[in-house]
């Protein structure tokens, strides 16, 4: 199974790149005009996994566009295809249909154009924190020496000072996630995908990580797509929330979060915040009476 998965995506990546480059006609004028304003545009992306005779629809056609520098959360029940969607945007899986455009340019099936971070920190145990953080730059062809020099000030600034030469096993869960996020951020990609990055952290660490993330987002001005199970987290962090339905995943609601930034922690108790939270929860299958109780 493991080998299968491993070879599968390699196969996909190669296959897709070739196919796309040859076969795809350029975006129509109208489409590209539409896409010009959007940083990331997902155009009727659908995914069907073929399991024997009948396929499983993981994603119904999904479309949305994100503005540059926005922070968007995606929530939805488990198995709604959030991770599939991320894999498609990151080019790790070819969609059954549809395209992904970055800056109005077709980016379906191309890798290395968005930063992608998973719930697992995936730090390499044989590299120090600093060398883990520079991995992305190294892969892009920057020499390790220069990459280290670039990364060092960021480590200092974002709470990893003094840990540069430690190994990941010596760090706490929160620290490891910080290192993993910095690795994603120091890539020169404008978009980053965060797949439940704080899912495995305890509530307290999670809260401080959320603030840390907002700080870093304000500094880097990247477009962030954030998957989470935690509705409160989604409302607290985002400009906008995309709600997805159960399989096959579709976007069933887009909820704008008009709360002013910077947001103090206390905003969680504000009536506006609670209304937004309830609206999300209703979509996730909690009935109004349940919420009232």
């Amino acid at each position: 199974m493991r080998i299968r998965r491993r070879f599968w995506h390699v196969f996909c990546v190669n296959r897709r790149v070739i196919k796309k480059r040859e076969g795809r006609e350029p975006l129509s004028e109208q489409e590209s005009a539409l896409a010009k304003n959007a940083k990331l545009e997902v155009q009727s992306v659908a995914m069907t996994f073929s399991a024997g005779e009948n396929g499983v629809d993981a994603l119904a056609p999904v479309s949305f566009a994100l503005d540059e520098g926005s922070f968007v959360s995606v929530i939805g029940p488990s198995g709604c295809g959030k991770s599939t969607l991320f894999n498609i945007i990151a080019g790790l899986q070819p969609p059954s249909a549809g395209t992904v455009a970055i800056d109005g340019e077709d980016a379906t099936g191309t890798i290395g154009r968005v930063g992608y971070m998973l719930q697992k920190d995936l730090l390499l145990p044989w590299r120090t924190v600093l060398d883990n953080v520079v991995l992305g730059m190294e892969i892009k062809g920057v020499t390790r020496q220069r990459a280290r020099a670039t990364a060092l000030p960021y480590l200092e600034r974002y709470g990893l000072g003094g840990f540069e030469h430690r190994y990941p096993r010596e760090l706490s869960g929160g620290m490891r996630q910080r290192a993993a996020l910095l690795r994603t951020l120091l890539l020169d990609t404008d978009i980053i995908l965060l797949d439940e990055p704080f899912g495995a952290l305890d509530a307290q660490t999670r809260a401080s990580m959320q603030e840390w993330l907002l700080q870093i987002w304000a500094d880097f001005r990247k477009t962030v797509v954030f998957v989470t199970h935690d509705v409160e987290e989604a409302v607290y962090l985002s400009d906008e929330i995309l709600v997805m339905s159960a399989r096959p995943g579709r976007v069933i609601d887009r909820i704008a979060v008009p709360l002013a930034r910077p947001r103090p922690r206390a905003v969680i108790g504000a009536p506006d915040f609670i209304t937004l939270k309830e609206r999300c929860l209703v979509h996730l299958g909690h009935t109004a009476t349940e919420l009232a109780a």
Partner: peptide
Amino acid sequence: DPDSERLFYSLGA
């Protein structure tokens, strides 16, 4: 770890 491999490819390796 296949996830680590995924990470590498997502970085454009």
